[in-house]
Design a protein around this nucleic acid. Structure first.
Lengths: 346, 346
DNA sequence: ACACCCTTTGAAAACGGTTACAAAATAGAC
DNA sequence: GTCTATTTTGTAACCGTTTTCAAAGGGTGT
């Protein structure tokens, strides 16, 4: 009686190699760099692969090659049309170039963001996509220590040493306010997002304020209010602003969701937009053109922005030269929610 | 002269072990099961860990332990409030129990879904969360071959051999239609999502139809129209339906987005909702209560549903006994968009 | 036939952890 | 103090790939 002590391998690259009668090295090559293996071998290997239904084990691959072809992204929340769109574009682009996306959320908390970054790095991501440039100090150190490339998206700060891609929020906000001023408004209110830990929000406020200042328009403190994230929050703020005995004839908003709140609340309080009140948004979400009245707003190509962020990282990882600061153009979309102020209040 | 040939290790668990003067096994234990190591050692190790800023390498961990504490989810698109909410809840829950979520999108394409599943399995996910029970045949085989636990979310099918969690769409749709019928409508149109490859959509249509049939109400073929995903598509369908010379007095919709389209188009065409036309949605998205008129719809606790899906998988992976089919209650939320039909058309 | 240079292939050592197993230390019982 | 049972710690094999390096193979030119 004869004993065969060939330890038969059930799965994995060794099983494929055994079945095709080649070495594991060849299988690996056939998978990663098909041209490096002769056509005949490749055929045998391919056949073995799908005979066995072989699926490569990514963690082992990552461990061995030190590259994961995976990018991480940390967004404040996924439950917001804008981020959802951005993420969708990024993911689509990445999968088109053979990368995967590892997505996490920070809930607008810098500590959580740091923690998630640690998590993603531990997971072996090749690079990180972050929202804005307002991060925990530890995050920068973490990224440097582990030499993880990253990019800040949604902002444009050519003077800072970090890569970024996005629109110039200050300039765009300035444009929005200028539109209102050009229409003849002098009594202008601001409803912005919370500025704390949110560079995008504060840049927009800065742009609004600069436009007012340049036209010599005063902004009474009670005409600037900040609101958290939800539509309900925005409505509440709008209610306050519209019920001041001395109220503005126009409101510029930090984003479209806020603008929706103002629109809804104005209607509820019997104001007609744009006859009694003009409203400008920021972002141009889907709903903005469907609403009645449709919303005048700043169009920001979110999808493009996030895709570019992906491109930047993928390119850098491939060793290609890429520009660190990319500006994404915005545009003012004038719709139905803005008009000259009522003559009585002009 | 003496040569030290202790190969010094720069990083990794071995570096931590060296610095703390212990074995790698102890470090590993301190990390994964702190109670299994004496307090004094643990202290030394913890200190070494943050002196070195050590971050465990997840892929190595996965490779070695054959568990990743990662779940995968495949949704049709992230760019839809409902999925976004679900994913957000799932992610939050998973991170609260130390799991991560690997998210991908299929774009409503079964082949892509299969491909993504392969991708996720290759990545080493411990389990998979899928939308509905309408999958590529290869997917079931793939899951079985690799013995990857999974759950279908958003549906309730107690008679099928696969785990699922969700509302009974047929029953919920029946409830929605019944509401309209109770109000006195007999001329009822249906605008549904595409039924092909979408069990949820077809279950809802079935529920609508059953309610009509039970009340002996006819459904002329041209009163049932199917639309793709976007608000624009929905508006177009609504325009068609509302401009039939013989039009319904009420429309039941496959989801809220479709209902928004009907609402917007009705207003545009000069119909007053609910006076001239009643509209019912399905899902109860955020917007539904903000819209004017606010939308009567079926409330579905999306967040809870997805979280339960996560719970199911986490529990199964922990070896706990869990129920395979969990029904999530829905409720009819009556708001402003429904009323008895105009007397002239009754 | 031989020397030469490419190209294709294989053997085996990483990669950074976990864990089975054995050894050492400690505690408890007498 | 000895012996046993238990806990704590260490050694080293292993997880499934990639990749270095060397060996084998295949043409050319002479």
């Amino acid at each position: 009686m004869r004993l065969t002590n060939a330890k038969s391998v059930k799965q994995g690259i060794r099983a494929v190699a055994a079945r095709a009668g080649v070495s594991t090295a060849s299988v690996s090559r056939a998978l990663n760099n098909p041209d490096a293996v002769s056509p005949s071998l490749r055929a045998r290997i391919d056949q073995a692969i799908d005979a066995l239904g072989y699926i490569p084990h990514a963690p082992a691959r990552i461990l061995s090659s030190r590259r994961s072809r995976t990018l991480g992204a940390i967004v404040p929340t996924i439950d917001n049309t804008m981020f959802a769109r951005g993420i969708a574009s990024l993911q689509q682009y990445l999968s088109s170039v053979g990368y995967m996306l590892l997505l996490t959320t920070s809930g607008y908390d810098l500590d959580v963001e740091l923690q998630q970054a640690r998590n993603l790095i531990s997971r072996g991501v090749d690079g990180l996509v972050l929202r804005g440039d307002c991060h925990h100090d530890g995050l920068r150190k973490l990224l440097a220590d582990n030499s993880v490339p990253f990019i800040n998206v949604g902002i444009y700060q050519p003077d800072r040493p970090y890569p970024c891609v996005g629109t110039d929020n200050e300039a765009a906000a300035h444009r929005a306010a200028a539109h209102i001023i050009e229409l003849g408004h002098r009594r202008i209110g601001i409803v912005s997002a919370l500025q704390r830990n949110n560079d995008r929000a504060s840049a927009r406020v800065a742009g609004f304020r600069r436009a007012l200042a340049e036209s010599g328009i005063e902004l009474p403190p009670q005409w600037h209010v900040e609101v958290p994230y939800t539509l309900d929050d925005a409505r509440e703020a709008a209610r306050y602003l519209l019920n001041l005995k001395d109220r503005p004839t126009a409101v510029v908003c930090g984003n479209d969701v806020i603008a929706y709140g103002v629109l809804l609340e104005a209607e509820r309080d019997g104001f007609s937009v744009p006859r009694d009140l003009s409203v400008v948004g920021f972002d141009d979400l889907d709903w903005s053109r469907h609403l009645r009245p449709s919303l005048t707003t700043i169009h920001v190509p979110t999808g493009e922005t996030w895709q570019r962020a992906g491109e930047y990282l993928v390119r850098s990882l491939a060793g290609e030269q890429t520009i660190m600061h990319r500006e994404i153009d915005f545009s003012l979309v004038v719709r139905e929610s803005t008009a000259p102020p009522p003559k009585s209040l002009k």
